[in-house]
Amino acid sequence: MSLDHLFTDVDNAAADLGDEVAVELDAETRNELALLSAAYGTDDPDELLRRAVHGLFQRVVETGNIDFHLRSEYDCTYDEFLAGMSYDEMAGGYPESDDDRRYQF
C-alpha cells in the first residue's frame, strides 16, 4: 500500500463513521467512564469519550506506535501523512512519471 491508499482509507473511514458512533460498553468500561464522569463533574459521557480518543491518539503519535502500524500497512509515517508526501518526495525525489520534462536536481 502507499500514502495514496492511506488518504483513501482515511477518507472512507471518516465517511463511514459519520458524526456519531454508538459504542457498546462492557462493565469495566462503564465503571471507568462513570468514575471519570464523577471526577470531572460532567454528565456528558460523549465529551469524555472524545477526550479519550484524543488522549489515545496523542499517546500513539508520541510513542511512535502509529508510525509502526502505518509503516507496516501503508509504507509511510504519520509525518508523511501530514505533509502529504513521502520522505523521498520531500528530499527532492519524485514519483516516476512519463513526463520527461519534469525539472530534476
Rank of each mutant, 00 (worst) to 15 (best):
S2T: 15
D4I: 07
D4K: 15
H5F: 06
H5I: 06
H5C: 08
F7R: 13
F7T: 02
T8F: 09
D9H: 09
V10D: 04
V10T: 03
N12L: 14
N12F: 07
N12Q: 15
A13D: 05
A14L: 14
A14F: 07
G18V: 01
V21E: 05
A22K: 06
L25W: 03
D26L: 03
E28C: 06
T29C: 12
T29W: 04
R30P: 00
R30T: 05
R30C: 04
N31A: 15
E32W: 05
E32M: 08
L33C: 07
A34D: 13
L35W: 10
L35M: 14
L36G: 09
S37D: 08
S37F: 06
A39S: 12
Y40Q: 14
G41F: 06
G41N: 12
G41Q: 13
T42Q: 06
P45A: 08
P45F: 05
P45R: 04
P45C: 08
D46A: 10
E47V: 10
L49Y: 00
R50L: 02
R51G: 04
H54L: 05
H54P: 00
H54Q: 09
H54T: 01
L56R: 12
L56N: 11
Q58E: 08
V61Y: 01
E62T: 03
E62Y: 03
G64A: 02
N65C: 03
F68N: 12
H69P: 00
L70A: 01
R71W: 05
S72D: 13
E73M: 02
E73R: 15
Y74L: 00
C76I: 00
C76F: 00
Y78G: 01
Y78A: 02
Y78W: 09
Y78S: 00
Y78E: 00
D79K: 08
E80W: 01
L82S: 05
G84R: 09
S86H: 02
S86M: 03
S86L: 11
D88R: 15
M90H: 13
G92S: 11
G93E: 14
Y94M: 15
Y94D: 14
S97D: 11
Y103M: 08
Q104N: 10
F105S: 14
F105C: 08
